[in-house]
Amino acid sequence: MSAENRVEVGPAADFEDGDAAIVQVGRVEVGVIKAGGEFHALRNECPHDGGPVCEGKVEPRLVGEWGGPGERVDQHYDDDQCIISCPWHGWSFDVETGEHIGDDRYVLPKYDVVVEDGVVYVNSE
């Protein structure tokens, strides 16, 4: 990633887990999200209705496991799966893959992120 084709986001130290920052990359907005100690960058446009998906909540995914006939489904937050949810209607996407958690045909485009000398950059190509 050369200096010409990347966009500076800001100091990595400014990000706590769950934080997101919106940057302009070319003609689109991209959300840079820190989750599980890693940075991810996704298009800030929900495929549902164009909402600012990366301005939504970043949180572990609520999952359920069935213990057997007659048992309640045990629901718990899975810290290994982080999702971001569009504040307009709640469409939720895996921050790592950009895929909608209920239908992987809906995908937020991903962008490469690097941290160099303590600064976060998004590839603009």
Partner: peptide, 15 residues
């Protein structure tokens, strides 16, 4: 509904 509230049907592997 499911696309907006997927976590409420956690056992489903598809819509």
């Amino acid at each position: 509904e499911y696309l907006k509230r997927s976590e409420e049907a956690p056992l489903l592997e598809k819509k």
